[in-house]
Amino acid sequence: MAMVQCTKVKKTYRQDTMATKALNGVSLSVKKGEFVAIAGPSGSGKTTLLNIIGGLDSADSGRVVVDGNVLNDMTQSKLARLRLHKVGFVFQSYNLIPVLSAQENVEFVMLLQGVPPPERRERARAILADVGLSGMYDRRPAELSGGQQQRVAVARSIVSDPSIVLADEPTANLDSKTGASLLEIMEEMNEKKQVTFIFSTHDKMVMDYARRLIYLRDGRVVEDKVRKG
């Protein structure tokens, strides 16, 4: 069964009298455990597609199914529950909660899920160690570098064992070395935990890491190829 199934997804943004077609009939299918990059120039609809798959935004038409859940039929409350339990997000600008430490940021999702405190603490520390941040549990985001913050964001996205992690240009604010290191971590997590990763990018290096590359242009899939085994 496909982890993500998009069928003829369309999305148009309207501002005053101007309409911008962000997605114009996107159809794609992503299997469990895939490590997929969605590439394309700015304005091609990458972020919109990720937002719709993650239940942050809704399609105007078409059908989106994530881990067996038809997103089109879901209420905001059910979408929030889906995001909480099935989807992990990594954003371009890290988006950590500034008043919480690295460990607390990672624990936060588990807190919302109702995981007991001792288990939260143990899992958060373990995943932070996995992403190379052992010993930095109590540091606040402002005390971490951009690369370290993004690692915390990755740790947060996978700590609750989601079905899928959506990363919107995760390396855009990082230098190439740090970006490569982060991608290795994501790849390792993908292999270790069999979590499906979909990330958007227009960075050649990031595309090279992906095992499957879906290329968008003007809201359409123009290329979909498996790059390596």
Binding site: L56, A80, L82, L84, F89, F91, N95, I97, V109
Partner: peptide, 8 residues
């Protein structure tokens, strides 16, 4: 962000 993480 909180809503994206699943906060109701």
């Amino acid at each position: 962000l909180l809503k994206a993480l699943g906060m109701k």
